[in-house]
């Protein structure tokens, strides 16, 4: 415990570094999954292809990917950019099929009716289709967020600074408190992010809460 109190600044520094590597992939996976899912949904065979590719992608173990990726994209093995790219790929593997399901969950009648009211295509996407896919998209983002935050720790093995460094270093030096701090801090960060996402969802999708409550 005293180790933790003596090293709060180290933990804070690693937490910051952890977030810098985790947040961009979460955001990128979300934003990029939208056009990819729309594209996939436009053709049956493409959708099948995307789902299969995503499954295979997720089957690649993270450590080898972190090691191999620099050779493919020319980043250093210790570069946080390397981690960001790898985690964005994992995020996409989770998020594209979910977003594809999300868009398919939107009632065609509602979309047709929106067109009939005079929504232009882009406005219809932003004002109708995207928010109505929102609950499913949010479910996907929550999984991506938690999974990304925990995967960032793998970079610690390669010496990329993150909360993962705490248990790599703790194991090497035999400091149990440091190992525990790494695990607890990572879990706390994941839970906090998840809670924030749930709150954001409540704020942005008040109609969905109403629906869960059922008819009065």
């Amino acid at each position: 415990m005293s180790w933790v109190l003596d090293n709060l600044d180290v933990i804070a520094g690693y937490t910051g570094a952890h977030l810098v590597q985790a947040l961009p992939p979460i955001l990128l996976a979300f934003v990029l999954s939208l056009p990819l899912a729309k594209l996939a949904n436009s053709r049956g065979w493409l959708r099948t292809g995307v789902t299969t590719t995503s499954g295979l992608m997720y089957a690649i173990p993270s450590l080898p990917l972190f090691v191999l990726l620099p050779g493919l994209i020319g980043t250093g093995v210790r570069s946080p950019l390397n981690i960001v790219v790898a985690l964005t790929l994992y995020g996409l593997a989770l998020m594209v099929p979910t977003a594809s399901d999300g868009f398919r969950s939107v009632s065609r009648d509602v979309l047709g009716s929106a067109t009939a009211q005079g929504y232009a295509p882009a406005a219809r996407f932003l004002a109708v289709e995207l928010p109505l896919a929102g609950p499913v998209l949010l479910g996907g983002v929550r999984v991506v967020a938690v999974s990304t935050i925990s995967l960032v720790t793998v970079g610690g093995v390669l010496g990329v600074p993150s909360l993962g460094m705490l248990f790599v270093d703790g194991v090497r030096r035999g400091i149990v408190a440091e190992i525990a701090a790494g695990v607890v801090a990572t879990a706390a960060l994941a839970l906090l992010t998840d809670a924030l996402l749930v709150m954001l969802g409540r704020l942005l999708m008040p109609w969905h809460r109403g629906r869960e409550a059922g008819r009065p």
């Binding site: 009632s107 009648d109 009716s113 109505l132």
Partner: peptide
Amino acid sequence: GYVMQASGLLPHRT
């Protein structure tokens, strides 16, 4: 004006 079955109302709008 366009009115359809199940009214096609936007579920996320009041």
